Amino acid sequence: MSRTVFCRKYKKEMEGLDAPPYPGQKGQDIYDNISKQAWQDWLKHQTMLINEKHLNLMDKAARQYLAEQLDKYLSGEDFDRAEGFVPPTK
């Protein structure tokens, strides 16, 4: 049976992550308060930001920018979007 959490992003009970995605306090907070779906959605969004903004993850400023966007994304604040992205039509 999978564990559930009250997802801070989607404001409802959802399936939780299997393990913290980061070490330390931040990873534990995500594990306790963010659903597996919200985390997967963040990973897709993060990939779009990296690609569209040509971020170099070796650059400390780029990593800090992504960390700030992660916090905004998961807490429901206004976050940056990839300017050139057009979602596919179904």
Rank of each mutant, 00 (worst) to 15 (best):
13 E>R: 13
13 E>V: 09
31 Y>Q: 06
53 K>W: 10
50 I>L: 07
1 M>R: 13
75 S>Q: 15
53 K>Q: 15
81 R>Q: 13
30 I>L: 12
34 I>A: 02
34 I>H: 01
24 G>Y: 09
47 T>V: 01
69 Q>L: 04
39 W>K: 02
86 V>Q: 08
41 D>Q: 04
85 F>G: 00
47 T>E: 07
71 D>L: 10
76 G>L: 13
2 S>A: 13
6 F>A: 03
27 G>M: 00
55 L>H: 07
90 K>G: 03
28 Q>A: 06
79 F>K: 10
67 A>W: 11
79 F>H: 14
73 Y>L: 06
70 L>F: 05
67 A>K: 15
65 Y>R: 10
48 M>Y: 11
30 I>K: 02
54 H>Y: 02
28 Q>L: 13
47 T>Y: 08
11 K>S: 08
34 I>V: 15
44 K>P: 05
81 R>G: 07
55 L>E: 09
89 T>D: 15
6 F>V: 05
49 L>Y: 01
20 P>N: 03
83 E>F: 04
68 E>S: 13
34 I>M: 02
78 D>E: 14
46 Q>R: 15
21 P>A: 05
84 G>V: 01
80 D>A: 14
12 K>W: 00
72 K>N: 01
2 S>Q: 13
60 K>V: 11
81 R>F: 02
79 F>T: 10
32 D>L: 07
47 T>Q: 12
66 L>E: 08
22 Y>L: 15
50 I>K: 14
16 G>V: 14
19 A>D: 07
5 V>A: 12
21 P>D: 11
31 Y>R: 04
6 F>T: 12
31 Y>E: 05
43 L>F: 04
67 A>N: 11
47 T>M: 08
72 K>C: 01
29 D>R: 14
88 P>S: 09
38 A>W: 04
81 R>T: 10
82 A>I: 09
9 K>V: 10
14 M>T: 03
13 E>L: 10
77 E>G: 04
53 K>V: 02
52 E>Q: 08
48 M>C: 07
55 L>R: 09
3 R>D: 10
27 G>E: 04
62 A>N: 12
77 E>Q: 15
30 I>H: 11
13 E>S: 07
6 F>N: 12
54 H>E: 15
46 Q>M: 11
78 D>K: 15
17 L>C: 02
90 K>P: 07
87 P>H: 02
53 K>N: 07
7 C>R: 03
26 K>Y: 12
58 M>D: 15
20 P>F: 03
77 E>H: 10
38 A>Y: 04
81 R>I: 03
75 S>F: 03
23 P>K: 13
13 E>A: 06
70 L>Y: 06
61 A>Y: 05
70 L>M: 15
22 Y>R: 12
35 S>I: 01
73 Y>Q: 13
63 R>S: 06
30 I>W: 05
60 K>R: 12
60 K>N: 08
23 P>H: 04
78 D>C: 09
72 K>R: 14
10 Y>T: 12
1 M>G: 15
77 E>M: 11
84 G>I: 01
71 D>M: 07
76 G>S: 10
7 C>P: 01
19 A>F: 14
5 V>D: 04
59 D>T: 07
88 P>N: 09
35 S>H: 00
